[in-house]
Design a protein around this nucleic acid. Structure first.
Length: 408
RNA sequence: CGGAGAGUAGUUCAGAUGGCUAGAACGCACGGUUUGGGACCGUGAGGUCGCAGGUUCAAGUCCUGUCUCUCCGACCA
């Protein structure tokens, strides 16, 4: 892609109504545009990042047997009456049609996936079953805030699993936890598995995946010696107390919840009369689990974690382009040769061939946070300048070496 | 929803005590000079001053209402 063709460009100034780092940088770098509080458009570059995160999530969900579907975001009132969510969930967006029919916008999809599963589940042989989707969720938050971290509309992966007994559920639950940790690792995030309350629909403990950041909204207590971590909302310990697992002193921190896993028990199966016949011919309600990952929130948290005074520093796994290629004055043809050669190798390149000053091009590449910066300049002959975004020193290498490193 | 701050050009902002055709920088268009860290000169386009009322000879400025954004809190499947 040529930088001059990008419809949303890097801006010299940050938006005045942004305080949070991710809001400021994502807008300034041209990745998102705000429509209203908590609702954003993703530009071509921003969408590339979102899609990369999405695909990492998708790959891992598929690897543990998840089947991807796409459910509607517009729901009939009846489904939400069946669980009493219509009256109990205050963040549920409700709307009325011109003929006074009432609808809800999906803030989660148990009410849709459970009746859907009735068609699929008749026998214990149909279990386990795991369905997931990646789509917009709607929540009528009293206050949307922090850029894309807490939106009224946000992009989420939600998976729902169905099991013949608790033991099978626990097995899958553990698999999901492992997959989640792999996902966050690939995204460059260190997620702590945190004990938390299950919310209004279950008495059970749930697990949240927390990433430490001041931009988050949760307070957690964690142990640096072992993996113990608990949300302060249910904590029976406080900062400095001994870790119940290993005895080391607990630390307190601000964190953002990027994922969660819930044991739903049989609540939804009962609400929708979803049953199966077990091996003894007895009718049973399956055990359900639900598993969320805030895809758009992950993007925001990554920006919160990876930035400096010059802009964003994307982890290579989710950068919109692998390489920023800058053509300095007089080296346009050489830069174009590099551009063609890299693209032929399947490397995604953002070529800055604008008639701009060198400084302006460097600044744009830094702000957009592409992991590798290549510079073609008459000063260096056939050598190409190679620099990582998070490093200050550059080195001169030739094209085959550039390709070798990028393919590696 | 309670509290605080803010809405003026595409963007970031300036416009005390009301006063004439509302300004700057950046960006944009055209011409020229530049080209290793957000270059420079000239010319030009671009504004219902969030919106609606009101006070006044006169309102970006004062008053009332309203909408929106940001932050703190509450809330948060």
């Amino acid at each position: 892609m040529k930088l001059s063709k990008l419809p949303f460009k890097v801006s010299k100034t940050a938006p005045n109504n942004a305080d949070t780092i991710n809001h400021k940088l994502l807008v300034q770098a041209g990745f998102v545009r705000q429509l209203m509080a908590g609702v954003y458009t993703y530009t071509p570059t921003g969408l590339r990042v979102l899609r990369k995160i999405e695909n990492i999530v998708r790959e891992e969900m598929n690897s543990i047997g998840g089947q991807e579907i796409l459910m509607p975001a517009l729901h009939p009132k009846a489904n939400w009456l069946a669980t009493d969510g219509w009256n109990k969930i205050d963040v549920l967006f409700k709307l009325k049609s011109r003929t006074d029919k009432e609808y809800a916008l999906g803030q989660s999809h148990e009410e849709i996936v459970t009746p859907l599963a009735k068609e699929l589940i008749n026998s214990y042989k149909d279990l386990p079953l795991a369905l997931y989707q990646i789509q917009w969720k709607y929540r009528d938050e009293l206050r949307a805030k922090s850029g894309i971290l807490r939106g009224r509309e946000f992009f989420m992966k939600d998976m729902y699993s169905f099991h013949e007994n608790q033991k099978d559920f626990e097995k899958f639950y553990a698999n999901v936890k492992d997959a989640y940790l792999r996902i966050f690792k690939k995204l460059g995030l260190t997620a702590k598995v945190t004990e938390a309350s299950g919310g209004s629909f279950t008495e059970k403990i749930s697990y949240e995946f927390m990433v430490l950041t001041d931009a988050g909204e949760d307070d957690i207590l964690y142990c640096n010696e072992c993996n113990y971590c608990v949300n302060t909302e249910i904590a029976k310990v406080k900062e400095g107390d001994r870790c119940p697992k290993c005895g080391a002193p607990l630390k307190a921190g601000r964190a953002s919840e990027v994922g969660n896993v819930f044991d739903l028990g049989q609540k939804f199966a009962k609400d929708f009369d979803l049953t199966f016949v077990d091996a003894n011919g007895e009718k049973q309600y399956p055990i359900m689990g639900c598993y969320g990952i805030g895809v758009s929130r992950c993007m925001g948290v990554i920006v919160e974690k990876y930035n400096d005074e010059k802009g964003i520093i994307w982890p290579a796994s989710i950068a919109p382009f692998d390489v920023a290629l800058i053509a300095l004055n007089g080296a346009e043809d050489f830069a174009n040769d590099i551009y063609q050669a890299l693209q032929k190798e399947g490397i995604s390149v953002l070529l800055d061939e604008r008639n701009e000053s060198a400084g302006s091009k460097f600044a744009a590449a830094d702000m957009m946070g592409l992991p590798i910066r290549l510079v073609a300049s008459t000063r260096n002959g056939e050598q190409i300048e190679w620099k990582k975004r998070n490093q200050t020193d550059s080195e001169l290498i030739d094209l085959p070496e550039v390709i070798k490193r990028l393919k590696n």
